[in-house]
């Protein structure tokens, strides 16, 4: 099996190499889960304003790579550089502080909580009544920004006090993207953001990612659906068995070629 896959691996010297100003660059990432070698010396990078499509079958290591980049699971070995500086991403908080926002398939929203509260989970703006890291929330700021974000994503008919559970899957995903945009991320990781979405909602998410590119925000877009990734990606990274097996500009490949590679 491994041999068959290896036949498809592009020669490593044909992998796209990071530019001198790469937004994020990882070298030799390793991750073990018990006896499973989930990441095998993976090099990865993303440029500012670049949309990287990350593809691969289930268990290929996509999710592990994403967990490393979002700070959820620190790597066992390897180095991560952001804007040229070596960084440690030990917790989601550290990754977010470095400008890496992750949008999860399940949207990382608390259903019973309002849109305004969800937008600021863990990063609540505080009023002047505070002691150390704790304090009263600045509700006006939260509601104002939530209202503005809702109008950015054409959800003006919803009050920021609406519980997230009343939103459709696509609307929730929009709010998650609005949240990431509000916190001025440099790099957006979208983990299967189009799962369970209607065609219309999917197109909307794809449009957002394109509009972020215009603002210079890079994206890593994970999907099992090549037809969602291919139209918007600048570059495609394919993984199998924990290894990077392809890193190629979209213009140099095709959907059929990639599908054949990863399936």
């Amino acid at each position: 099996m491994a041999e068959i896959l290896r036949e498809h691996v592009l020669p490593k010297d044909r992998f796209v190499q990071p530019g001198p100003n790469a937004l994020i660059r990882c070298v030799g990432l390793e991750k073990w889960y018990g006896g499973v070698h989930a990441l095998v010396s993976v090099d990865f990078h993303a440029e500012s304003g670049e949309i990287v499509g990350l593809v691969g079958d289930n268990g290929a290591g996509k999710s592990t790579l994403i967990k490393v980049l979002s700070g959820a699971h620190p790597p066992d070995a390897g180095k991560i550089y952001i804007d040229g500086d070596e960084v440690q991403l030990r917790t989601p908080k550290e990754a977010m502080a470095r400008g890496i926002e992750t949008i999860y398939q399940y949207t990382a929203m608390v259903p019973a909580m309002s849109i305004a509260r969800n937008m600021f989970i863990g990063r609540e703006p505080l009023s002047r009544f505070k002691i150390g890291p704790f304090g009263l929330m600045d509700r006006r700021t939260m509601v104002d920004h939530a209202t503005r974000s809702l109008s950015n994503i054409d959800l003006t008919e919803r009050s920021p006090d609406t519980p997230v559970e009343e939103l459709s899957g696509g609307q929730r995903q929009s709010v998650a993207i609005a949240r990431a945009m509000y916190f001025k991320s440099k790099l957006l990781i979208l983990d299967e953001p189009t799962n369970h979405l209607s065609v219309k909602e999917t197109n909307k998410v794809l449009d957002y990612v394109l509009s972020l590119k215009e603002q210079g925000i890079g994206s890593i877009f994970i999907s099992h659906n090549m037809h969602h990734i291919f139209p918007i990606a600048d570059r495609i990274v394919a993984m199998a068995r924990g290894e990077k097996i392809a890193d190629i500009m979209k213009s140099d490949t095709s959907i059929d070629e990639l599908t054949e590679l990863i399936v």
Binding site: V110, I121, M137
Partner: peptide, 17 residues
Amino acid sequence: NWIFATGGQQQAAADMG
């Protein structure tokens, strides 16, 4: 807010730091 988030959807709370 953290208490409600932790009980409402622990994974989301953890992922948001």
